[in-house]
Every structure is written in structure tokens, then in C-alpha cells.
Design a protein around this nucleic acid. Sequence first.
DNA 1: AATTCTAACTAACAAGCGTTAGTTTTGTTA
DNA 2: TAACAAAACTAACGCTTGTTAGTTAGAATT
Lengths: 189, 189
Amino acid sequence: MKPITRKQEIITVASRLFNEKGYKAVSMRDIATAMDIKAASLYNHIKSKQEILSEIILKVAEEFTVGMENVLAENSSAIKKVEKVIELHIDITVNHSEALAALNNDWMHLEEIDLRSFVKMREDYEENFRSIIKQGIESGEIKPYHPEVILFSILSTLRTLYLWYQKRGKLDVNVLKKDMVSVLIKGIV
Amino acid sequence: MKPITRKQEIITVASRLFNEKGYKAVSMRDIATAMDIKAASLYNHIKSKQEILSEIILKVAEEFTVGMENVLAENSSAIKKVEKVIELHIDITVNHSEALAALNNDWMHLEEIDLRSFVKMREDYEENFRSIIKQGIESGEIKPYHPEVILFSILSTLRTLYLWYQKRGKLDVNVLKKDMVSVLIKGIV
DNA sequence: AATTCTAACTAACAAGCGTTAGTTTTGTTA
DNA sequence: TAACAAAACTAACGCTTGTTAGTTAGAATT
């Protein structure tokens, strides 16, 4: 099913360390020490430190992209779509909590091609979310506040969810979904 | 009024660079180059790189602390207090947009004493905000959602406001206050 | 039993880091 | 104009960084 390769182990350990101190503050020797090997040994499995960062960030970014595409493909109300987006964020937060720190704070350390790819995905994601909200306002499902403020408000909350999730010790997923949907949606309908 | 010392210039330039790439990714030589001098010259004005970070973060953290104390001292409803907190964040965002990046992402690179001081301030701040919300729920002003979820939702939005403020090109402060208060409050009353 | 593969190792590199010491330039005041 | 302080400079330090080269031990395959 999931053959835990040595490379994947490195990426997991690195995610944990990047989550704590950030990409630039973690050295290859830090990662190696955490795995009880020497820094040079890491290079039997990965090409560079950059590759680690890139795999962490782009894998999760693609999950967001695919998730958003699924939501858009649905034939349902705007509010239902917003609910689905919220659930998407919660699922990813629960499964990749530590990768989200890198995605949020270290994306600017990606190199050219990966950087462009990431920024594009993030812009598209925001634009798609924005269109859902606008659509909801037009149909009268969502209050006619400034769409940008609604987008920003919801997205800020969802993007920093991983910080709360880590602090409050692994809340139950379904309870989390129910509460988040309530608080985030009730304010705008 | 405000005698722009050379030290203050350094801190301003450093804030801008930290905002772009993070504390660890910015070298003293980067800061110096941005000021058209050599790295060693910086040390005529500051003690260490750490001091720069510490001044950036703690100065703003104290503004939050003082601001929250003023709100608590008021004799007004819970909702009014929440409004004041929102306005506090907006004012600080407008005046110290770039310092907020360091405060949000680089606080863990503070050294011992400053680190403890910062963490204490942040915990107290959250606790005070939490108590305002709880008080509002008890008095019936605020809907009886889980206070932690309300706290998290509002605080996430306010804490990442600087990112949007920078992107959307310096919005008008008063418009911002009105819209933010609407969207953030209307959902919970 | 011989070979190949995997994953570790040691040793070292060139570049960059924060910082210090000592010196020179610049601008203001006596 | 001489003296002084402020703020720049050059040169270097010890240390850490990401990474490479070459080697070795053990396991799997032929």
C-alpha cells in the first residue's frame, strides 16, 4: 500500500523540523541527527535540500488544487461548496499538519520553477474560492458583503488552522468540521 | 518628534527584508547592502542581529499588550470590546505591517529571555481575548458557540491581516475597520 | 561463492555566516 | 583651524552551511 521509503522518512522528519523552526533554520545535519545518521548519508536518497522543501510543499499544494477542482465540479449551492472547501482544509490539516507550516511560511524559498508553479496554484485557488463566494452573493445565498473581505476572513482562518490543531492536541475531525462550518458560515448567510 | 536615528533606519530596513524572506534567510550583509554600507558598519549602531529581531518583535508585542489593557479597562459591552480589539489590530497592521511578519513567523528565533517574555505576552493576550468572548456569551451578546472556535477564527483573521494589507495595496483604514467589524462580528451575534 | 545493490560511513571542499579589531573618513563644535 | 565624535571602512576570525568524492559493511540476487 504505502511502501515507506527512506526518502519518505527523510521528508517526514524534515517536515517536523521545518514546522518547528522554518526551512532556513534547519540544517542538513539537523535532519540527519534526527534520523541517527550522518548528513552526507541523506544524499543517497535525495538530490538536495531544495528537493525536500519542494516535495513537501508541492505535494500538499496539489491536494488543495485537486480538492478545489472536485468542489467546483459539483452541482450544488454556493454555500454547500463553501462547506466542502472548509472540509477540504480540515482533512488536509489533519493529514499533513506539519507540511502546512512550510507551505505557509517557506514557499518563498522554493527555486524558480517550483516557485512559479506554487504561486500559480495558490492564485488559482484563491480565484476559484472568490468565484464561489461571488456566485453565492449573486444567488442571494450569501450576504452582500465585500467578497474580498469574506474570502480573506475565511481563508485566513482555514490557513492557520494547523497551528491551533497542533496546539489543542489533535481534536476529533468530525467535531471540528461541524464547529468550523457553523462559525464560518453562520456569519455570512 | 521622532528623531530617526541610524539604528532605527537599520531596524526599518531589516523589518522589510525579514518580511520578505524571514529572519534566518536575511544576512547582516543583506541588510548592509540594502543600506549601501558594509556589514561591519552596522555594529556601530546595534549590538547584534538578535537585537534587531528582538526590537522589532517586542516593540509591537508591547503595543498589543498595552492596547488590550486599555480595552479591558473600558466600561462597555463585550461586543464593543471585541470591536475595539479589531480596531487595535487594524491600527497596528497599518503602522507596522512589516514588523508583523517577524512577530508571526520568527518569534521562535528570539533568545531565551526575550522568547519567554514574548510567549508570556502572547498567552496573556489570548487569555484576555478569550475572557471577553466568554463574558459576551454569558451576557447573551454573543452566540453560545465554542469560545475557543470563535477566538481562533477572529484571531486568525486579525493576525494575518498584514498579508492582505500588503497585497491589496494600502486600503483606507476607516473603510477597513468598518468592513472587518461587520464581517467578524455579524457572524457571532 | 561471486556479484550487485543499498545505505551507511569518513573526510573534505568552497562559500557564507555573525562578529571583532583596528583604522580612516566625515561632519560638527570649540 | 584644531579637536572630537560619529559613522564609515578593510581585514580577518572561527564556525556552520550544503554538498561531493570515495569507501565500506551488510543484504539480496545470480
